[in-house]
Simulated scan of single mutants.
Amino acid sequence: MIPFSDDELIEPVKQSLSKQLHILHKDGGDLEFLGIKSGIVYVQLTGACSSCIASNTTLKHSLEKHLKLDIHPELSIVNLRGGINEFKKL
């Protein structure tokens, strides 16, 4: 169980993600932070990353890995292709 509320996680998660954005930027991609619900970080991959076949690998093996190391091992990250509208429906 993650010992932080979703609201408490927002800033640390944003900071951790910002340290890894260079990975996306070097390939012409980016991400939009959508929010956190029940310890799951929701983002929308944009630019070249939105259609890249390796985007899930980058998401899990790079961004999620660093979230787990920086903040808590139970955090996970999910790309919502529908963006903020899809996040609001969760």
Rank of each mutant, 00 (worst) to 15 (best):
M1C: 04
M1Q: 01
I2H: 00
P3M: 11
P3R: 14
F4G: 11
F4R: 09
S5Q: 07
S5G: 04
D7T: 08
L9C: 05
I10P: 06
E11N: 08
E11Y: 06
V13W: 04
V13R: 10
Q15K: 13
Q15A: 12
Q15D: 07
S16Q: 10
L17K: 01
K19Q: 05
H22T: 14
H22Q: 13
I23G: 04
K26V: 06
K26L: 03
K26M: 11
K26Y: 09
K26F: 02
D27E: 12
D27C: 04
G28N: 08
G29V: 05
D30W: 08
L31S: 14
L31R: 15
F33N: 04
F33I: 04
F33D: 01
L34N: 10
L34G: 03
L34C: 06
G35V: 02
K37A: 00
K37H: 01
K37T: 03
S38I: 02
I40A: 11
I40C: 10
V41N: 14
V41A: 14
Y42V: 10
Y42P: 05
Y42T: 10
Y42E: 08
V43K: 04
L45V: 05
T46D: 02
G47V: 09
G47L: 07
A48Y: 13
C49Y: 08
C49T: 12
C49V: 06
S50I: 10
S51R: 08
S51F: 05
I53A: 14
S55T: 14
T57L: 13
T57D: 05
T57M: 11
T58R: 04
H61A: 02
S62T: 13
S62M: 10
L63W: 12
E64L: 02
K65M: 00
H66K: 13
L67I: 03
L67P: 00
K68A: 03
K68Q: 13
L69N: 05
D70H: 03
I71H: 01
I71G: 04
H72I: 07
P73Y: 11
S76H: 11
S76V: 12
S76D: 13
I77N: 09
I77W: 11
V78Q: 07
V78C: 00
V78I: 13
N79W: 10
L80V: 01
L80A: 08
L80I: 09
L80H: 11
L80N: 05
R81P: 01
R81N: 14
R81M: 13
G82P: 06
G82H: 01
G82I: 06
I84H: 10
I84P: 00
N85V: 00
E86W: 02
F87D: 01
F87Q: 00
K88Y: 03
K89R: 12
L90Q: 04
